[in-house]
């Protein structure tokens, strides 16, 4: 079961997740080094590969607000983090779906760094505190993109169907 490796508050912007000064870097293979670049201790842990893939980052409300920069998603996906937040800003949420970053909308989540979480389809169970929090299901319109493996394969399928018609 995954542990919470980093916890942030409400309204964490994409400027905090991926500072603007690194925006010229676009390749998903290169963006992960700048994830939370100004949160130097966490960034150092990520770069030193001390964060196991599948670890959880817990966010508050409106996680990922601000810029539409997709690097803010690809940099987290590169470390295979799972984002559990009370709510997400619209563009960040859509970018996460499109790129296949795993995220869970959990409106009441309470967890501290180090806590162990069990992630099930309908709930997040905090094994450390023994509390359970319900999860908001993804609407079908977004789930189909997740199930297709992201927007690129989803669009490719549509394009081929269009060409065949």
């Amino acid at each position: 079961m995954p542990n919470v490796v980093f916890k942030v508050g409400d309204d964490v912007s994409t400027d905090v997740i991926y500072p603007g000064r690194y925006m010229a870097t676009v390749l998903p293979t290169e963006t992960p080094q700048f994830a939370f670049a100004d949160e130097t201790a966490f960034n150092a842990k990520l770069k030193a590969r001390q964060v196991p893939p599948g670890s959880v980052l817990v966010g508050g409300r409106n996680f990922g607000c601000g810029s539409s920069r997709e690097q803010a998603v690809s940099c987290l996906k590169g470390h295979e983090l799972i984002i559990v937040a009370r709510s997400f800003a619209r563009i960040f949420l859509q970018n996460a779906i499109n790129l296949g970053l795993r995220m869970i909308v959990c409106p009441e989540i309470e967890a501290a760094e180090g806590d162990e979480l069990e992630l099930t389809a309908g709930a997040v169970v905090n094994k450390t505190t023994g509390r359970q929090f319900s999860v908001e299901p993804m609407p079908q319109s977004r789930q189909v993109i997740i199930d297709a493996g992201g927007l690129i394969p989803y669009t490719r399928k549509r394009l081929l169907a269009q060409a065949a018609a």
């Binding site: 676009v26 539409s68 920069r69 997709e70 998603v73 563009i91 859509q94 970018n95 499109n98 790129l99 609407p139 319109s141 977004r142 189909v144 993109i145 992201g150 927007l151 690129i152 989803y154 669009t155 549509r158 394009l159 269009q162």
Partner: peptide, 21 residues
Amino acid sequence: FGIGATEMASVWALGTVLNVE
């Protein structure tokens, strides 16, 4: 409205935005 780069790539290909609520 604002979208991400991958979504724009999809728009460039199809001319539509997919699954807009």
